[in-house]
Simulated scan of single mutants.
Amino acid sequence: MTKDNREHKKAVVIGGGTGLSTILRGLKVVSSLDLTAIVTVGDDGGSSGILREELKMPPPGDIRNVLVALAEKEPLLQSLFQHRFQHGDQLSGHSLGNLLIAGMKEITGDFVTAVKALSRVLAVRGTVLPAANQSIKLTAHMDDGSIVSGESNIPKANKRIERLKLEPPDIEALPEALQAIEEADIVLIGPGSLYTSIIPNLLVPGIQTALKETSADIIYIANVMTQPGETDNYDVKDHIDAIYRHVSFPLFQKAIVNTGLIPPEVVERYKLEGASPVTYQPNSLADKHIEVIEDTLYQMNNYVRHDAQRLKEIVLHCLYGHGYRK
């Protein structure tokens, strides 16, 4: 962990999927940050979907990924928690981490208590909270008038999404999540799947109210690539417009966007999968009074991913006003 003499600040990160895990890996090493991750509970596919239905619990998959990202001894735990059984009629397809969360939930009798207990066992750096203590069902209203239910079904419909709704509509946010937002110095939203990881958190009534009332800077971290079936041909403004259709107030003070050029051969490879770079058009957010921070934010292994180190530097600059150079 990075040791520093800066005053302690409180950061809340809201989202789900690999994007949330990436930014948390960068921020967890900063000793002056008190981190809280608020994680979506709308997943209904794969191992998470099966456990959700059979055990009547919130889906554990996104929570599992965040616990691994924030764990002190991450490499070994990642292999253990992310291991998926390949054999057995009942076990095949399940990740060991999901089963451990499910088992802890049965031992403690409560999903949130189970997450807290596993956080202690794993020496997690920060606090991990589901957006709610129960599963939510996502329903997408498409631009052709059709309605698609279920998080895993929404991208498969391959239609333009106009509006997302939660069931039940009166779902209650965790008091700890609301308190974290209220006390935060900075709130980071994204990166992650726009309609299935980001917006569902914002539709929880208490969370939206807390975001409206907090004095924290609220910053949007834009995706680097579009997601097939969700954000086809979206640029940064399209992402933020979609979020603003679902909240009742101007949410963001800043947006962090990638303006680094992705190599053409990589763009072509992603094009075969139906994805493309998320572009930013200069001054396109001026009417929303959002300060835009532009930089090269991606790195490549087999896939294009956010650069956790670069994002960390930008976030610290937003908090402390120094230590970041383009």
Rank of each mutant, 00 (worst) to 15 (best):
N158V: 10
P168Q: 00
K156V: 13
R160Y: 12
E172I: 09
Y195S: 10
A177Y: 03
L188G: 06
D170A: 12
T196D: 01
N158R: 14
G145F: 00
G145D: 10
L166F: 04
L174E: 07
A177K: 05
S152P: 00
A184K: 11
S146M: 06
G190V: 08
S146L: 10
E172V: 14
V148M: 09
I198F: 01
L166P: 02
E183V: 03
S193P: 03
I154H: 01
S149W: 02
A173W: 03
D185S: 13
I161C: 01
L188E: 08
I181S: 05
P175T: 14
G150T: 03
A177P: 08
S152T: 11
V148L: 09
K159H: 12
I171C: 14
K156L: 05
P169W: 04
D170W: 06
P175Q: 07
E167R: 14
P168C: 03
D185F: 00
E182G: 05
S149F: 06
D143M: 14
T196M: 10
D144W: 08
G150K: 09
P155I: 01
A184S: 15
I181R: 00
I198D: 08
A184Y: 09
S193Q: 12
E167L: 12
S146N: 00
V187S: 06
Q179H: 14
E182Q: 14
G150N: 04
I147Q: 11
P191E: 11
P191F: 04
E162Q: 15
I186L: 15
I147D: 12
T196R: 08
I171T: 15
S197E: 11
P169M: 08
I199N: 08
E182L: 07
A173I: 02
S152M: 05
Y195M: 04
L178W: 00
I171Y: 07
S152C: 07
I186R: 12
S149H: 13
R160W: 06
E183P: 04
Q179Y: 12
G192I: 03
G192C: 00
P175G: 09
L194S: 04
E167H: 11
I199T: 12
P191N: 06
I199P: 04
D144L: 01
P191A: 05
L174Y: 06
I161T: 11
I189W: 09
R160G: 05
D170C: 05
D143E: 15
A184M: 09
E182R: 14
I186V: 15
K165W: 10
L194V: 02
